[in-house]
Simulated scan of single mutants.
Amino acid sequence: MNILIVGAGPTGLTAAVELARRGVIPRVIDKRSGPSELSRAVGIQQRSMDILTPSGVADDIRAEAVRFDGIAFHIGARRIAKFALNYDETSRLYGLPQDRTEHFLARAFARYGGKIEYDTPFEGLTQDDTTLRVRLGGTEAAFDHVIGADGAHSDVRAALGLDFPGFDLPEEWSIADVESPDWRDPETFQGFLLPHGDICIVAPLEQARFRVIASQPDALAALPVPMNVTRIRRSGAFTISVRQVTAYAVGRVYLAGDAAHCHSPAGGRGMNLGIADAADLAGRLIDGDIGGYHAARHAEGAHVLSFSEGLRKAVQSKSPLRRAVMSRVMKLIAAVPPLRRAAVRYFVSG
């Protein structure tokens, strides 16, 4: 089976590893000049770790990642609730910069005999009932299947002429990847609800390194508690799109990860959803059960988009009454163990 994967991010590399460990080594191309050095996605769910266990990638991640000890919520600087994690397998959540996750996936792919071809852009495709030909890096080649895992601005999706319906949030968000040697609760995922519906999030990346995200122009300035920042590795601004492709499969071409869906970072589902897409698709290609891919993954994508948007709207509510009620509800949930466990399950696993 001759398979091309376009995109060497977490989604594309998961598909590559899952195919390779079953005996099918795909061709993987990426238009970038080399591996990414950006932290991007942070949180890794236990479900993703389960997917990455057979290849050994989960062990590599576990050895380096921060295992969050809890999720804490604040109104301004005042903590209102903390939900402990790690009381069972479903309540584990790990933090690791995306470039390190990609590194471990690429290393596993190489162990199986795979190679990533950088500086190789996807330039279009044609397919009919019998042939599938792809233009890439100035050449043309035939494949049995193509996986588009090339991100939210997917060239593969564009080549298929597929719509990417949805909407963009009006506000500009900001991000900072920083080092702070004495940040409080360094293994806790922390959310700060700010006035006027704004929010700031601090997520551990590794020892003394953190991701700060805010719905304001300056993430560090938005943080309502002091943070001793000794180094800013990266900062920038971004907008949030909430979109899902109309078809995950056209003929023998399939979309996965951000090429098929994008949403807010609320709940930390993006990379995990892409990893799940990739594993499902790789398994179906090996088993010859590809017909159910769109239905299964479109439904899961729609669920995650609904979950993340619902969570974002709740924490960004501008209503003082709703915020007061949310504060009381969080305190109640945190104080009652069965409710606390259910809330953690919902937040961590969706």
Rank of each mutant, 00 (worst) to 15 (best):
A278Q: 10
A278E: 13
A279S: 15
A279C: 13
A279D: 14
A282Q: 10
G283I: 01
G283V: 02
L285R: 03
L285Q: 05
I286A: 06
I286N: 02
D287H: 07
G288E: 01
G288W: 06
G288N: 00
G288P: 01
D289S: 12
D289A: 14
I290Q: 11
I290G: 04
I290P: 01
G291M: 00
G291C: 00
G291H: 00
G291V: 00
G292L: 06
Y293Q: 00
Y293N: 04
Y293F: 07
H294P: 01
H294C: 06
H294G: 09
H294I: 06
R297I: 07
R297Q: 13
R297P: 00
R297G: 07
R297S: 11
H298Q: 14
H298A: 13
H298I: 07
A299I: 05
A299F: 02
A299L: 04
E300T: 08
E300G: 06
E300Q: 11
G301P: 05
G301M: 03
G301C: 07
G301K: 09
G301Q: 07
G301H: 03
A302C: 10
H303V: 02
V304G: 01
V304I: 15
L305R: 12
S306C: 08
S306P: 03
S306D: 14
S306E: 11
F307R: 00
F307H: 08
S308P: 04
E309M: 14
E309V: 09
L311R: 09
L311G: 12
R312M: 08
R312S: 10
K313T: 13
K313H: 14
A314H: 12
A314I: 11
V315P: 06
Q316N: 15
Q316D: 10
Q316I: 09
Q316S: 15
S317A: 15
S317F: 09
P320Q: 07
L321F: 15
L321Q: 07
L321A: 14
R322T: 06
R323C: 10
R323H: 11
R323N: 15
